[in-house]
Simulated scan of single mutants.
Amino acid sequence: MAGRFVGWVARLSVAWCVAMSPSWAQEVGSEIQSAARIWVAEAVQTASSAASGAMRMEVSLGSLDPRLKLAPCGNMESYLPPGSKLWGKARVGVRCVDGITRWNVTLPVTVNAWGKAWVVRHQLPTGAVIGPDDVVEAEVNWAEEPSAILRDPALWSGFQVAKPLSTGQALRANMVRPAQVFQVGSPVRVVAQGAGFQIASDGQALTAGVVGQSARVRMESGRVASGTVLDVKTVKIDL
């Protein structure tokens, strides 16, 4: 009986040593890389298919930390960590859901998305108003920065530069701001609109006007009200 017990312990020890040997560790590492690579490729393909416009996607998967010694796993599950997205520099997780030891690791991944965008022709200082002559269309990496690319000219034409821009920079949402269309004291047209009627009168701006934003005006009657700036001389007030 004692001999059988010793033999069983010996076989268990041998099995454990084999499972944790360098060759097994390398095999587990290769399986993790493969699982992550397949999952990322499918996820990026799905995302690019759903996106509007033609994008050229590039994916680069990093390596697992070679110091990790992970036990074999019967079933691995790849996932995207909470708060992350496959855009630019990110990490993808792989966890063991069926094995002697339940482990969980992450690998670095870089996703580049190349597509057409508007880039600055020359340096633009803060406050400059952007026009068609200031930009040119070129292919850029949309995922190089987190801020969204401004593909539609309506989102940047006539807007002001929010921070200094250098030649070759792609226009992004955090680089522009609506332009000021009138100053304090400027004469404006006030359009008061209610259910089934509209009244227009002259007024004076009490605050600077930016299209789409709120501004305070004094009407001919002396009444002060706030409304939405529509253009260079019109403020709409909803009654």
Rank of each mutant, 00 (worst) to 15 (best):
M1S: 14
R4Q: 15
F5Q: 13
V9S: 10
L12D: 11
V18M: 09
M20P: 08
P22K: 01
I38T: 12
A47C: 10
S48H: 05
S49R: 15
S52R: 14
M55L: 14
M57D: 14
S60G: 04
L61H: 09
P66R: 00
R67S: 15
L68W: 02
G74E: 03
M76E: 05
L86N: 04
W87H: 10
V94P: 01
C96S: 05
C96N: 03
V97S: 05
R102V: 05
R102D: 01
N104H: 14
V105Y: 01
T106S: 13
L107S: 02
V109Q: 08
G115Q: 06
K116H: 13
A117I: 09
A117Q: 06
V119M: 07
V119K: 07
H122K: 09
I130L: 09
G131T: 13
D134G: 11
D134Y: 06
A143K: 05
E145M: 11
E145L: 15
S147P: 11
D152A: 03
L155G: 02
L165C: 08
A173F: 06
M175E: 03
P178H: 04
Q183D: 03
Q183N: 08
P187Y: 03
V190M: 00
F197G: 06
F197D: 09
Q198N: 11
Q198D: 13
Q204Y: 06
Q204T: 13
A205V: 00
M219N: 01
E220N: 14
L230F: 04
L230D: 07
